[in-house]
C-alpha cells in the first residue's frame, strides 16, 4: 500500500485522526509520519452557522470596531475578534451568531 500523504513511498505507519467527531484512518510512509509526528494539525476555526449569514462587502462604510479598527468582514474570515470593544461594536451581529453556535443562548450564565 502506498502512503496516503505523498503517494510515493510504501506505507509503514498506520495513523488515526478525528475529523468531525469520527475516527478516520490513514497509512503513511515513515517520512510523512515523522513529519506529522508530534506536531498536531491546525485547529479548526470553523464556526458553524457563520457561512449562512449574508456577506457585506468590505470598503467604505463597512462596519469596523471603534476600539481596534477590525473590520467585521475580517472577523467573518478568521473567526477571531480583535479586542474586548469588538463585542460592543458588533453586538447585534454577534448576538445572532452566538444564538446560532450556542444552541439559542443569548446571555451569559455562570460566575
Amino acid at each position: 500500500m502506498l502512503c496516503a500523504s505523498c503517494g510515493k513511498n510504501q506505507a509503514a505507519v498506520f495513523i488515526q485522526e478525528i475529523v468531525n467527531n469520527q475516527v478516520r484512518e490513514a497509512s503513511l510512509c515513515a517520512a510523512c509520519a515523522e513529519a506529522a509526528g508530534v506536531a498536531a494539525g491546525p485547529e479548526e476555526l470553523f464556526l458553524p452557522g457563520l457561512s449562512t449569514i449574508p456577506k457585506e462587502a468590505r470598503g467604505e462604510g463597512a462596519p469596523r470596531c471603534s476600539g481596534c479598527g477590525l473590520f467585521y468582514s475580517e472577523f467573518r474570515k478568521t473567526g477571531f475578534l480583535g479586542c474586548p470593544t469588538c463585542y460592543t461594536s458588533f453586538k447585534p451581529a454577534l448576538q445572532r451568531i452566538l444564538a446560532r453556535i450556542h444552541h439559542g443562548a443569548v446571555r451569559h450564565r455562570g460566575s
Binding site: 478525528i18 485547529e43 450556542h102 455562570g110
Partner: peptide
Amino acid sequence: YGEGTKVMGDLYQIANAGGFGRT
C-alpha cells in the same frame, strides 16, 4: 494533543464545544 486531531494509543479527549449560556 488537544488542539490537533491525531489519535495515538487509543487516547481521546472529550470536552465541551463552547459553553456560552451554560454555567
